[in-house]
């Protein structure tokens, strides 16, 4: 499950930031990825919503400190979805 999410999320990151060299780790933050700012972050969340069939609430949009927190949120939402 976790591996599957990591692979799918990596694909999403590479597509959104047009960079095939991105390798995800839980510690990765916006400071580590060129082009990941508050504006492109919206693109990232839309892409994640579409990929995983989940939705982020307004107050969640800027709440992830790193990729680890983002992955936890995806896992939780997918579990809730069943």
């Amino acid at each position: 499950m976790k591996m599957d999410i990591t692979e799918r999320l990596t694909k999403v990151f590479r597509k959104v930031f047009d960079d095939e060299s991105i390798i995800l780790s839980p510690e990765l933050t916006a400071n580590d990825v060129d082009g990941w700012d508050s504006l492109s972050h919206i693109n990232l969340l839309i892409a994640i919503e579409l990929e995983f069939g989940i939705e982020f609430k307004q107050n969640e949009i800027q709440s992830f400190a790193d990729v680890g927190e983002l992955m936890q949120s995806i896992e939780k939402k997918m579990a809730e979805k069943g």
Binding site: G35, D37, I42
Partner: peptide, 21 residues
């Protein structure tokens, strides 16, 4: 569609700039 919107948004970010989305 939402997919087409995402395609437009990503294209602008990567071709022009994130401030232009």
């Amino acid at each position: 569609s939402k997919e087409l919107e995402l395609k437009c948004r990503i294209h602008v970010a990567n071709k022009v700039s994130s401030v232009a989305i």
